[in-house]
Amino acid sequence: MIRVEGIHKYFGTLHVLRGISLNVAKGEAVVVIGPSGSGKSTLLRCINLLVEPDEGRVFIEDTQVNRPEVRREWVREQVGMVFQSFNLFTHLTAMQNVMLGLTQVKGIPKDEAAAKARQLLARVGLAVKENSYPAELSGGQQQRVAIARALAMDPKAMLFDEPTSALDPEYIREVLDVMTALAREGMTMIVVTHEMGFASNVASRILFVDAGVVIEEGTPEEVFHHPKQERTRSFVGKILR
């Protein structure tokens, strides 16, 4: 479904990604962990080409997408993204946030888009909040709207960039529940998170990334409880307690 081959990314002189490869099968949920600044977010952004990798290849369903002749907008329609800071459109209600991509990017008629938006908001448990503006919602609610907004585009896969790190502890659960349900329904997901409970329950694989390279890869059991690398061990030791 998603394949990344040896990508490198430089920000100026900073070598952020140093040849990362990754293969995610359809319906798989892969969790990426690693210290801050290790390139996890950049890796996600390279997949939907919000950041253009300097070297290497990105495939979505066996189509290499980081070629100049591939429309970036098309690539991003295939892969939904959820951000750490939600990034809901502040001037639009929850409902309008979900609808905007449908009506303006996909060109779906308004009433159809509204029906779909209602259905998606109900799915994330926010049917009663459709007329609220982002500022009137809690962090957890905003993030669930953001998930609904990404799902509205019918993506083939979803990228989650630390979706719960900006949330108060009381709201983390509700967002993780939505994500868990999504994974159970067979959505292909790549999740950058430090929620170890979620990772253990949902992830088919864990990727430990440090300094722009994949240090270790395996099932949650392997990575969390029997790490092979010393660096993995010390990192996991810090976050698992």
Partner: peptide, 19 residues
Amino acid sequence: GQVEAARALGFSRLGAMRH
């Protein structure tokens, strides 16, 4: 972040600007 979110949904540069 607003622009990034718009681009991630598949908006073009002009579309993100306009909407």
